[in-house]
Design a binder for these strands. Sequence first.
DNA 1: CCCAATCTGGTCCCTCCGACCCATGGAGGG
DNA 2: CCCTCCATGGGTCGGAGGGACCAGATTGGG
Lengths: 203, 203
Amino acid sequence: MIRILIADDHDLLREGLEQALGAVPDIQVLGTASSGAELLSILDDVSPDVIMVDVDMPGMSGLEALGKMRGGPPAIVVTMHESAKMRKQAMDAGAVGFLSKSTPLPRLAAAMRAAVAGESFIDDDYDVTSHMNAVLDPGAAALTARERELLSLLATGVSSTDELAEKLYISQKTVKNHLASIYDKLAVSDRAQAAVEAIRLGL
Amino acid sequence: MIRILIADDHDLLREGLEQALGAVPDIQVLGTASSGAELLSILDDVSPDVIMVDVDMPGMSGLEALGKMRGGPPAIVVTMHESAKMRKQAMDAGAVGFLSKSTPLPRLAAAMRAAVAGESFIDDDYDVTSHMNAVLDPGAAALTARERELLSLLATGVSSTDELAEKLYISQKTVKNHLASIYDKLAVSDRAQAAVEAIRLGL
DNA sequence: CCCAATCTGGTCCCTCCGACCCATGGAGGG
DNA sequence: CCCTCCATGGGTCGGAGGGACCAGATTGGG
């Protein structure tokens, strides 16, 4: 279980992330802060495994806060400014991860797992996919790319053979074959169980 | 059940809100868009009761998109620019609601309920609380106790009629009847989709 | 007191799903 | 070069699942 702290001044993002990340099986949201100062003040009470911090916050910025807490838990900086300059500033401030606010949720989760594992996680194009595969859940590792793709659809509520075949541009028979492989690897026996497993695995 | 559409270019906010709003009993997220153009394109396929749209989006802005869809479903504008000028622009573009991104989640939900009720909802200080109390009330989940019980089991991977009947001490036929009711209420058509919905609802 | 909702159970029917058999072509590793 | 894995596809078949009805017992609210 990864215990995290979220710092962002936008309530919608903060509360939304709290919900969404809390729903991830191995992540627990300990608390949130809406400013750098608030982050520092509650950091003493809770001891998170990793913190997610926004750059733009009223009063003390996320990077300032990071500078004042050297030696604390690893921090992942999330921002809407995707420039290389900002990334360097974040890393200089001691961040172990740097992500855009346009990052898909699972990648944020992957970054947190990487952070607690002592690795850094930079939102770049090269090498990221291989890195992510290493960080992702071992249970899902056995699945092939195509199987994961199908399973992801299943986890979003696309359940009929027909729809799945359509969305994957393959025949209904191939869908059934992939499903059979998934059932075997996940030790389940139907789509409902597979969907539950898929969500549990964060797909 | 309020069926909504979310348009925001920041994946984290979009996915977070999708999760968080989907967890609200009387709200169902039909889909999301990451640009004004995408919003317009999917608006034809789904017919939401209300849409939430960000102002700042690449290409076509939220306000531009609103201007092009006059006559569509009511729209709530959410932005980080809290100026009165921006609010006026939003209302001129046809928005029925205007909220800051620093708005607490329940207020956003309240605004959506107000929007479908034909009322407008402006993020102002005066009169808002009284308005909210009138609009709030989380609208009890349509599911009955027994249905929720069955659905919870489904969400834990108990999918076969046989097992469900056994664990609930009822006949297989009654399981099927309950499932049929659940399908109807959740607008799904099989156990896999119901399981996905159940988890999304936090069961 | 009656009506509506809920929980329980039933029958019929037919689609669809999952199990098991197989084949082919391509990619990659030893 | 061969062998394995993957993705694609085919066929068959029994049984489970879902749709469309119905109906009795109980409970609670108007």
